[in-house]
Design a protein around this nucleic acid. Sequence first.
DNA 1: CGATTTTTGCGGGATTCCCCCCATACTAAA
DNA 2: TTTAGTATGGGGGGAATCCCGCAAAAATCG
Lengths: 216, 216
Amino acid sequence: MSTGKVRLIMIDDHELFRDGLSLFLQMQTDLEIVATAATPMELRHLLSAHQVDVVMMDISLPQQSGIDLSKQLLKEYPKLKIIFLSGNEGQAYIEQSLKAGGKGFVPKSAPKTEVLEAIRHVAGGQFYFPSELAQSIFQQYISQLHLQTDASTVTERELEVLRCFANGMSFKEIEDHLHISKKTIEHHKKAIFDKLGFSSNADLVKYAIKNNIIEL
Amino acid sequence: MSTGKVRLIMIDDHELFRDGLSLFLQMQTDLEIVATAATPMELRHLLSAHQVDVVMMDISLPQQSGIDLSKQLLKEYPKLKIIFLSGNEGQAYIEQSLKAGGKGFVPKSAPKTEVLEAIRHVAGGQFYFPSELAQSIFQQYISQLHLQTDASTVTERELEVLRCFANGMSFKEIEDHLHISKKTIEHHKKAIFDKLGFSSNADLVKYAIKNNIIEL
DNA sequence: CGATTTTTGCGGGATTCCCCCCATACTAAA
DNA sequence: TTTAGTATGGGGGGAATCCCGCAAAAATCG
């Protein structure tokens, strides 16, 4: 990238946002906005047709979360540099984006100069994360990475149970829905509470909303 | 508005979004973007200094929700036309925006031409709501408006109890927090469930989040 | 103003639901 | 083979829910 422009693709389901930002980015002489995408599928098509350096990705996407999508994409395109954009700048999001292999994170509340900074850092092979949060995140993250990656691995089945509870279902309703006994549900629920550190059902609901497991 | 341009102000806490959209709107010859604001306070200052026709407002704002803000502003400036922009296009949001006196609603996932349409409609004295939703909303809304406003009269005390439950507190914790007996809390909780039609605690949490009673 | 309704507050008792610790068992992956 | 995930079960205790009724203050109504 020392020669030529940084080739980038943006994916965001909000056309307003997408066009607005790409308009701004196009003014930069060192960038080339190859294309923009609204859906994961569009993005896949674009990636298979173009050579791309950087993808700017909204975390909340239709169909699939940006986190999941980036994990998949990085298997196919290991050299791809992904910068996440998110309206929600909670630490949990940033951690998730790191785990997913993201190279940068920019809250949507940031000034647009920060987007440029992020792109240039990341295109140059560096990481870019919000300075205010970088310190505490790296400290906390690095020290607890082992524990957390173990702990926060919610299994598929647990996720189903979690979704049921977040939708307000009772044990009996879940029994019928998933065809497992109340005891098994108890077991999964306990595991979920332990892994994710919930102390009330309300925590569970909030988590499910934050992580797009259920609709608000 | 038949003579001269439509004078509008935009308020959104995301600079990226704000600048992107205003860049696009400035290209329109019939519009004049007076200014943009990031916070309710900025907006108030701008409104007291300029003559404005339309305000485009993000529903999720720092400090205060756009719904609350618009209610207050309309007391001071009854002629103001407010268009809400929201990333969340749930029906509950649109209903709230109607109740708050909004004249238009545009999801952030809409194409940018829809923003223009909305502005022109609203500036011309009409309402603008997403066509796909307009029908069902107006039907449902108009027919149930009386019932809903009656039913949803949650008293102050009930709201406190609601907030506690939504924050994941148990009966005992609420006893200590509000200094009332478990039986009274039960009573309030039952009233809340009846009035708002909840069928699970998860419903309660979601309601509290939607209505900015608690933080997500 | 007095009367009624609403809001807020408290209680008993029965029932159901949920939580917790225990143990078991099969399967698949590391 | 050990670990992790999924699945199930017993039994106890505590928490929540639901059914009643009662009462004082506040707001609203006639």
